[in-house]
Design a protein around this nucleic acid. Structure first.
Lengths: 203, 203, 203, 203
DNA sequence: AATGAATGAGAATTCATTCAT
DNA sequence: TATGAATGAATTCTCATTCAT
């Protein structure tokens, strides 16, 4: 496969970012496979072929979108995890951080949700799997610590709880619209309230 | 020519169902767009063209998969809604019913989650939108009734709560594997426990 | 960013016209259905898929071929009909104009003859039916006027006469080859002589 | 090419004829290429595959339709040509015979008109070319004889006249509907009147 | 005689990608 | 940087035909 990497370094990284933001939006809206390069080019006011001056391939566009997002996500997560908080506070901080990421990278998050599973099959995207494992370790570990510390309920299956919390947070990307009535922090607060204390009235 | 037809007269609708189950599995695993007709045919041990003896098009396959699922779902939901239960009991029954549907139609549910948004754009799939609206009315209405009855917390945004509960339940289809260690009823019980009472230990 | 189209290094409409002329020739020779897109592409020295850079579909090729032809035809016909000639002179002018059109658009005329009936079934080609009705009105009207003016025989069924004259002229497209020994005007003259005065020697 | 001719002799030649009549009708209406075997079978109330009990192939259906028609046509033509009539009477008899054939074999005639050109390319259909040459010899010869006898005008190009008369008669198949208001003989009479004496009033 | 199910050879069309300008 | 034109591989779908029953 003759794959000449033409331009890893491009004169205008700004244009690049613009185009990537655009592409992310379209990928998120229509799905990666269903999105044609032509569609992205249309949106950018250029012809399909012209995109190849900026990017090697459609694949490298998602790649850059996703890895940029994950880099930022892990910067946030890592600093939370390094802060030495208790399990409950850690969960709270992670959830809040997650909603902030959704706010800033909505499209990327949506793409991640929809496409990561089948993209991860390709070697190029193995970092998705790595990230997911790291992710699971962080959350599941925190939950287990919380159970041990009697902060979280012991009568629940921890794995189930993990999935519950994880999904609960990230699916939000599918309906979240930045600039809506709730700030990410407000949404985080309400989500945490539901997840931690439930929606039922306590008697 | 290795063409082993089993003994019987091969009743047509059975073969159809077999093929649809197969197709659903592949659609769920790879996504509708990314799934080629050829792939489904391979899986069925026939040539791509042969599928067209049974179905009009790839589209009509998803159509049948989704509408069959929704028909069954609404049968279940409707009888729950008609039972005249209180809000909390209604939510419990709906969640349980949902997990039962996930158990029986895992692939269809996964397809519904991933593809309904963009399929719904086509007139043929307008019933997806209809179903979704009916769905929202049922859940949101029950939650509101519950808030009015002081069964559910009044300090939460109901719409947010609705999305929380809804997503929480249905994303499960993305990781649920029938025949696993937990029965759908057991999963429902734990989910309900989390959703209603939260994961935090009460002091 | 203003999007200026470059100079006219490769005037697109010319290539389009070339390709359409080619396609028309093949459609006329083999019939629309029997003509594969690949065949047209072969003739143009390109791959089948490449045609889709220029045209939406095979259908839109015939569409453009036929509508271009009909536009020109009606330009000619309309100016004849607007000239206020007597019935006989009108028929003469229409026949002459028709043979000129056959000369300039032989392929399109042949396609029109063979395919218009079944193409007209599709909404996209309703203009074929419209054109045909306008056509009938023009010819039949002129013949009726001629009968009233005692220029044409009154003992013949006018509808039959209409079909006779119409077919007589247009089938010529099936054997006419431009650049042959007879100019369109010469053919028109002879056809008119036969149609108006018959082939029998008068006694 | 393993082409087993299964049933040149079939139990029920009547069913065969029925099916052929049906097929002819559909071929005439939609064109040979555009007609699917399935469509014919539908019309006959059977499944596509079942037709192959009666016929070797779709091709052999048109073949039988066309050759049956031509056989009958030539029976009629031959007896006219053998009658030793004068040129004008011969033309009259041929035209009348032609309209009778159109009346009896409308579908076959329409198929012949539309499809013979491209079918004739295949060896199997060479008889179409043969027939056409014989046809041309008969008509052109008669016209030439008429010109020599001063029965037909000498100032016209004979080939052009031949095409004129030929087309004039046979295109009628495209609009003729058996059982209409005019009998074939009446149509023949009027056509002959136009062809021989013209449509203009004589002064 | 006819059915049901399939085959296999194309058909039109789509689309990521290339490349000379 | 971007365009215009093309490539080529893949994709959905069609259809004549086969064949066991």
């Amino acid at each position: 496969m003759p794959n000449k990497k033409k331009n890893q370094v491009t004169p205008s990284p700004e244009r690049r970012r613009e185009l990537l933001a655009l592409a992310a939006e379209v990928f998120a809206a229509q799905g990666y496979n269903a999105t044609t390069v032509r569609r992205i080019a249309d949106e950018a006011g250029m012809l399909a072929g012209s995109l190849y001056y900026h990017f090697d391939s459609k694949e490298s566009m998602v790649d850059e979108i996703l890895s940029t997002f994950l880099d930022e996500l892990w910067q946030g997560y890592d600093s939370v995890l390094a802060a030495g908080l208790g399990p409950r506070e850690t969960i709270e901080a992670l959830v809040t951080e997650s909603f902030r990421e959704i706010d800033r990278h909505r499209a990327a998050v949506a793409i991640y949700q929809k496409e990561s599973r089948h993209l991860a099959a390709q070697p190029r995207f193995h970092y998705l799997t790595d990230s997911q494992q790291k992710f699971e370790k962080a959350w599941l570990g925190t939950l287990e610590r919380g159970v041990a510390d009697r902060v979280f309920r012991a009568d629940l299956d921890v794995r189930l709880t993990y999935r519950f919390v994880r999904d609960t947070v990230w699916v939000a990307a599918s309906w979240y619209r930045p600039g809506g009535q709730h700030s990410p922090e407000e949404i985080a607060r309400q989500y945490l309230s539901m997840v931690l204390d439930g929606i039922a009235v306590r008697q």
